[in-house]
Design a protein around this nucleic acid. Structure first.
Lengths: 241, 241
DNA sequence: TTGACTTATTCTACATCGTAGATTAATCTT
DNA sequence: AAGATTAATCTACGATGTAGAATAAGTCAA
């Protein structure tokens, strides 16, 4: 019932092309990219693959595993060779953040899957290992390096997640024929929200890339400035191994 | 068909108790808290309220609006009086982050709704206004204050989102009878992931509160250190209004 | 060639979901 | 009392994920 670890037909003669895990995931990613996440149903996926929806279940245990596959595919697009080891560590971290973000922004519709789920596969952990190496190489203690990697990952994924959410929301609002920020302005009366109105009056929409860069630089700077002090206070909560 | 702006029976004598938007949302939040987000179906909600599922639709246009209501309810739990205006601005920001996080962590099952969706209601924007006031009061330009608020919000929501995801994942793993990190260790072979193994060997699970504090302090420090320089470079991308 | 075994796909069916539309019951207004 | 509003119910539809049985296609020993 469940797929075997190795396909016999794949090892020797390849008489059966048929369905593949990879082909399924590729098709799924294409659907998500082009039609949105909510369009990814097993039935639709089956029709794209010109196959009975149930055929997919021979190669993939359930839909959640399919989504894991999507994450794996996108994470696999991360190109670590874009890194430049001659740069100072903090710059490499910032660069890594941008690489990470770019890959995700290339699949905006898939971001809510990529960003939300935890990493499950070896492939997905390779960039983490790479990042960990940078932090440790920069002199972070294992404690701090782990915290830094977690914080980094959460910042980037969280930021991108909300970035695309905001983009979609603005698109939806614009689609209804009204200016993007207009609805916000009429939602927030001046007397109750003076500061918001003050800011909205003097500032247009900010480029999100700049915002991201600003944020990640602040975070990285802060981490490099802070993480070398007060190491001792953290060794309190050690649990198992 | 759609609910009226003001209930007549609410203005004068209150003969009809019946269903209320608030009661519905409260019940929904209770379901989510106790049984998880996936348990929140209109039918189940109706049965809890001892009412036909369709009755809900008189008070709430659709399920997505119900989720908005959840967000509103939780955001409403934010107690701004916990702030201490005598503290330095950067400390107030850190404190605000903890307050925000605590409220969300009080409803871990609702976090993926709260954290993911954009803010829609006046109520939800009150803390934003408050925060904006702190940043502006600290001397941030409107540009920078807006960026700072966005970055802050994304950091906190993103962090908490992944925090609870990790907690749920660990619970699920522990439930199957295996130690939390064990599965990770066997997923990541030493030869391919030396750094990860190095860190996992010397460091146990880190307390997430500490990690959060570390992260938000790094971010805030970084923002306060960075945001006063290079103001000019940002005035490039002004769009409408 | 033949028959058994394995692998891959299809068919049928079910429970559950959100919710549109028509209907009925309860209350307020006149 | 009669009509109008407001609120809750009933019925039904299409879509979803997927369990389970049935079927086709390919491999291999005899």
């Amino acid at each position: 019932m469940t797929p075997p670890r190795k396909m016999v037909s794949e090892e020797r003669g390849k008489s059966r092309p048929g369905l593949t895990r990879e082909a399924i995931i590729a098709a799924a990613l294409e659907i998500v990219d082009e039609e949105g996440l909510e369009a990814l149903s097993m039935r639709h996926l089956g029709s794209v693959l010109k196959v009975d929806p149930m055929a997919i279940y021979y190669h993939i245990p359930n839909k959640s595993a399919l989504l894991d596959g999507l994450i794996e595919a996108v994470m696999g697009e991360i190109d670590l060779s874009l890194d430049d080891p001659s740069l100072p560590a903090s710059e490499r971290i910032v660069l890594a953040a941008h690489i990470y973000r770019d890959v995700m922004m290339a699949h905006p519709q898939a971001v809510q899957v990529i960003a939300i789920n935890n990493l499950n596969t070896r492939e997905s952990f390779r960039p983490v290992e790479y990042l960990m190496d940078i932090f440790l190489g920069a002199g972070f203690s294992p404690h701090r390096a782990l915290a830094a990697v977690n914080i980094f990952g959460r910042f980037v994924r969280g930021f991108v997640l909300f970035e695309v959410h905001q983009i979609f929301a603005e698109e939806a609002a614009a689609c209804h024929g009204c200016a993007p920020t207009e609805s916000l302005q009429q939602l927030l009366p001046v007397e109750e929200f003076p500061r918001m109105n003050e800011v909205m009056a003097s500032v247009g929409a900010l480029g999100t890339v700049d915002e991201f860069d600003l944020g990640i630089r602040a975070l990285v700077d802060g981490m490099f400035a802070t993480f070398y002090e007060d190491e001792d206070q953290m060794s309190v909560n050690e649990d198992q191994t």
